[in-house]
Design a protein around this nucleic acid. Structure first.
Length: 572
RNA sequence: UGUCCCAUGGUGUAAUGGUAGCACUACAGAUUUUGGUUCUGUCAGUCAAGGUUCGAAUCCUUGUGGGACAACCA
């Protein structure tokens, strides 16, 4: 994977309220002109498109201002975290095209320092060990509109607190028996300042520190300091952490108070609105629920909004970065239309994906005046948008398959395809005319009979004739079979979370996956590899699935082509 | 009946006291050996009321609407 592979030099500088704030800081000479951002995931699930927004933002900001970006795992809760997630997160970030500065960092790297700071706070009389239960503490917390009450343990002596905290660390208390709390203000209108928890006892092995600790810092006591330790200049995070900011600042003030000399870099937190996409859910908890209950085929199911799911679906890193740029950054939350994401991937694939012929739902078409046993190799352009992609040859013969949809016995007015007595062009081959057809007892068309005009082979003078419709096709004899998975949105409702009292799973789209086993492909596709991407001409963009093999080709539909005909038909 | 944040076309985002622009969507047309792409056009917006100002989307006040905050989660 290349380093910092997003080409910052020819990318237009992004402008939003965060870049403006950073520019201001730079102008004021803050942080010695440095910009260091960070992407701080908790390794408790797979990354999704919302994280992609944050990744593109954090890495993009640094690139734009000549800075760097750290990757730091916020691994302060061993109960939920796992190395499987660490690995997937690193893979996804690299796949998106970003490379973090130095080694990946971990909040757990700072556990010793955090412990020292906790002790320091105790010594200052700004932290105490509380022996109440979680319920009691919650009951005293008050509500957003009422102040809380002080814990009976709030005024223990420094010595006592020091001793008790030491015992907590040494495992002399059971989980839940006591916690370390900051002593701030139980009446603060900001709930986060009402003596927040700093440490709790968790007797579980940590994925990095093993059994060294049985007390773990809360996120709020770890995050701001971790940024501080790393010298992060701008801590970019989502809106819900806005109310935490005064707490982070409080902790840092306590620490900095005792420092001499004073630090040159103190992180500045700036919050932005998280990404919401319609027709999907974005919370890790809900995505995990879909995975664990097998509503989908794992975290990388192509219907999932996860980065691994989008990758398997056939999305490109370029298209996701483009999407992140287009949605912008602001403080007001909203819902982005998935149509924009789809636009971005079509836009990219249109320029890069080779065009090929695939017939998903075949019906046999026999060209009655074409010699039996004859095979002609037809030349086709691989990508009309990119001449450098060259041409290829496709076998043509007397019997071909076309799409069932491309023939109608009794077509409506604007049907530009094949019908009895009508002419149509077979792309890169001949103009044919439908003479007859055969139906089975159910009225299903089983065979179509046509004649071709030998002077209309593509490239010949006769081929210049105007014909309204152009069809894709494959030769019966030479075509190869494949399985094609047609994906649609996972939810049929625009906002599956937006219905009070109705579980989001109620809106799961029963037609989100259709498996087509009848597909026939041009023979050039026999050696494709997972993640190879193509445009199936006239149908859409497709990507080879990870389960595909030489004897059993499997393609995922990334996104269909825009289809004005289908739209017209739907209206009627 | 608290604190904080937010409010621009259907959606998202610009305009930072001086002509409300861009993208997506939708619709119409041109081109087309993909009903794709490309090109052109159309519809459509400053939450409300006051105030400051020659001039307000922008500043102030009030209201309205939306969101966040009461995990030993992050």
């Amino acid at each position: 994977m290349s380093k910092g592979s997003v080409e910052p030099e020819n990318k237009e500088a992004l402008k939003n309220f965060i870049t403006q704030e950073i520019e201001k800081d730079l102008q004021e000479g803050k942080n010695g002109g440095a910009v260091l951002t960070r992407f701080p995931p908790e390794p408790n699930g797979y990354l999704h498109i919302g994280h992609a927004k944050s990744i593109c933002l954090n890495f993009g900001l640094a690139q734009q201002f000549g800075g760097k970006t750290n990757l730091r795992f916020d691994d302060t809760n061993p109960v939920k975290e796992d190395v499987e997630y660490v690995d997937s997160i690193m893979e996804d970030i690299r796949w998106l095209g970003f490379e973090w500065e130095g080694e990946p960092k971990y909040a757990s790297d700072y556990f010793d320092q955090l412990y020292e700071w906790a002790v320091m706070l105790i010594k200052k009389g700004k932290a105490y060990v509380d022996h109440q239960s979680a319920e009691e503490i919650a009951a005293q917390k008050g509500t957003p509109t009422e102040p809380g009450q002080e814990s009976p343990y709030r005024n223990r002596t420094v010595e006592e607190n020091l001793e008790l905290f030491e015992k907590m660390k040494n495992g002399e208390f059971e989980e839940g028996e006591c916690v370390l709390r900051a002593k701030i203000d139980m009446a603060s209108p900001n709930m986060h300042l009402r003596d927040p928890l700093m440490y709790r006892i968790i007797k579980k092995e940590h994925h990095r520190t093993g059994d060294k600790w049985c007390i773990y810092p809360m996120y709020d006591f770890a995050h701001g300091q971790s940024d501080f330790i790393e010298g992060i200049t701008h801590s970019i995070c989502t809106l819900e952490f806005e109310v935490h900011r005064p707490l982070y600042n409080w902790f840092l003030e306590q620490i900095i108070e005792d420092m001499d000399p004073k630090p040159t870099v103190v992180p500045r937190q700036i919050e932005f609105a998280r990404l919401n996409l319609n027709y999907t859910v974005m919370s890790k908890r809900k995505l995990l629920e879909l995975v664990e209950n097998n509503y989908v085929d794992g975290w990388d199911d192509p219907r999932m909004p996860t980065i691994s799911g989008l990758r398997r679906r056939g999305y490109t890193p370029e298209s996701i970065r483009d999407f992140a740029d287009r949605i912008g950054v602001a403080k007001r939350d909203g819902i982005i239309d998935v149509a924009l994401l789809e636009h971005c991937v079509r836009d990219d694939l249109n320029k890069t994906a080779p065009r090929v012929y695939a017939v998903l739902d075949p019906v046999k078409l026999i060209i009655t005046n074409y010699p039996e046993g004859k095979v002609e190799m037809m030349v086709a352009v691989n990508n009309p948008e990119d001449e450098s992609m060259g041409t290829r040859e496709i076998p043509f013969s007397r019997e071909i398959y076309i799409e069932k949809d491309d023939f109608m016995i009794d077509p409506p007015k604007k049907f530009f395809r094949l019908a009895p007595g009508k002419e149509v062009r077979l792309k890169n081959a001949y103009i044919i005319k439908c003479e007859d057809y055969k139906q089975d007892e159910n009225g299903e068309v089983t065979e179509i009979y046509c004649t071709y005009d030998p002077d209309t082979r593509s490239g010949m003078e006769g081929s210049k004739r105007k014909v309204k419709g152009t069809l894709h096709w494959v030769s019966v004899e030479q075509s190869i079979p494949a399985e094609v998975r047609l994906y649609d949105r996972l939810f049929s409702d625009e906002d599956p979370n937006g219905h009070d009292g109705v579980d989001f799973k109620e809106f799961l789209n029963p037609d989100s996956l259709k498996i087509v086993k009848t597909a026939r492909l041009e023979p050039n596709l026999k050696d494709v590899k997972p993640l190879d991407k193509f445009q199936f001409q006239r149908l859409g963009y497709f990507c080879v699935d990870k389960t595909s093999s030489e004897d059993n080709l499997v393609f995922n539909r990334t996104v269909p082509l825009k289809d004005t005909w289908a739209k017209m038909a739907k209206k009627k």
